[in-house]
Amino acid sequence: MPIAHTPTAVPVVVDEAKCIADKGCTVCVDVCPLDVLRISDLTGKAYMKYDECWYCMPCETDCPTGAVTVNIPYLLR
């Protein structure tokens, strides 16, 4: 899997102000079927580590604070 080390635009974005991963939440990381989300050591917040999304949206639906947004970046006019 290609690992994103540098900040690039990824389809799944987390609003760090809303994310409560620093209080122990890992919901989005847990539910993602493709396991592409992680909690950042740097910021203590969730982020998309692997850009390999099925665009299925459990991460967004299950996040208790509404911090996750799934964008569909490809093939839009």
């Binding site: 847990d30 539910v31 993602c32 079927p33 493709l34 396991d35 299925c56 949206m57 459990p58 639906t61 299950d62």
Partner: peptide
């Protein structure tokens, strides 16, 4: 392979 809470064809 994933998490039973949200896995498979009908995860949603």
């Amino acid at each position: 392979k994933a998490n039973v809470k949200r896995s498979g064809a009908i995860a949603m």
